[in-house]
Design a protein around this nucleic acid. Structure first.
Lengths: 216, 216
DNA sequence: TAAATATTAAATCATTTGATTAAATATTTA
DNA sequence: TAAATATTTAATCAAATGATTTAATATTTA
């Protein structure tokens, strides 16, 4: 039972896995990828393990054989997703080689690119945290270091009056909010998928401009 | 069966209901209020009808007797919530008596007040729409009229260069995003409930200021 | 090739959950 | 007060769903 758990200790297995990954994906990774897709789209509660197995093209028994439970698999995916959403920015924000303006340009560009590839990511993470905050006490690393980043130092030098948290809320909100609100605009509003894509593309230039305006 | 459905046609009932509402709430309203609370906090899929009945202090059989199904009750609540989130702004935006700056001040104040009283509202509506967009084709009224509001006319007069949709995304995002991101800041970040409340309070003044800066 | 491991298929379990029913009791109405 | 209506209680249903088991088959490893 749970033979796959030994793989990390047995050379033969590891080799096999590496070979597999060159061609297609390992079974474990197939499940994870399927879980990312289904969990992200429907949320934890609305996701059926059978959906994940089907999406993976594998069998339900094997999912439990590999991950023990829906909950365990979910946590694996969730840790990844939280990291992707929150930790993505930190390195650029702490780059001591770039100016404040350069940071704004770079972060906006790369973060919006990431969100364009993962449009459901923010609403997924945020709504799962809301519907079950306890679970994330352990999962989520303290994010306070952003408020001590090189970026914040530069911000203080540029304009003493600005509360860094307020600035972050604006900066993140400008990037993230359109993706969170996207379903509303597409369902209820007069905005097409293409128009939305253009709006987002334009914001790569506009957001840094606006943020600089707010710096006074 | 479903005797309560006749109430709208029978005078005796209507009278009884009015009397009840003076004292406490009608049974139907107790269920709705409980449903608002539980659905908003946990989302549709994670909500059990038994939770709603318990929250209402009433019994499960009666819930189905009144609303037929979980789905029906949910739709009733959801229509309210969507309206609250989206239609709240429209009147102020179409007020022909106020200037652009006055509109920004007023809307920011009243909308943030509403969100403070309903902090889970945005994430609830947005995540439900995402996880089941089909359902909202019928529910959500076309929201395009905001883009033809008096506000947008004034915007065009003030600054031709600004895309109204981009401006709305910023304006709404600045107000809504902090509430959407709140669980993250409280769970992962170094922000207390009180600090968050102060941040929000400050934004009532700050957001109009920032929006005006962006007007150039 | 033989042994070890991985995967499938199918049946089954136990629990949860939305929904229903029937009978008893409480409350309101006329 | 008698009839109509509302609510509770408790049992039950049927379907969905997470999880497990077992036996058969496929694949990999040594």
């Amino acid at each position: 039972m749970f033979l796959h758990l030994y793989r990390q200790y047995k050379d033969g297995y590891r080799m096999k896995e590496e070979i597999k990954e060159e061609k297609n994906l390992s079974t474990e990774e197939k499940f994870k990828e399927a879980a990312r897709i289904v969990f992200t789209k429907k949320g934890y509660a609305a996701t059926k393990t059978r959906d994940i197995a089907e999406e993976a093209g594998l069998n339900l028994a094997l999912l439990n054989y590999y991950f023990r439970s829906k909950e365990k698999l979910f946590e694996i995916v969730m840790i990844e997703k939280v990291k992707q959403l929150l930790s993505f920015i930190a390195p650029a924000m702490n780059n001591r080689e770039t100016s404040l303006d350069e940071k704004l340009n770079q972060v906006t560009n790369s973060y919006i690119d990431m969100l364009t590839k993962n449009p459901d990511l923010p609403i997924f993470v945020l709504s799962e945290i809301r519907s079950n905050p306890e679970r994330f006490g352990k999962l989520v690393q303290s994010n306070g270091h952003l408020l001590k980043s090189h970026f914040v130092q530069q911000l203080a030098e540029r304009n003493q009056e600005i509360n860094p948290l307020q600035f972050f809320l604006n900066f993140l909100g400008m990037m993230v909010f359109p993706f969170v609100a996207k379903p509303v605009f597409l369902t209820a509003g007069p905005v097409s998928e293409e128009a939305f894509a253009q709006i987002i593309e334009d914001r790569k230039i506009l957001i840094p401009k606006w943020m600089k305006m707010m710096l006074g």
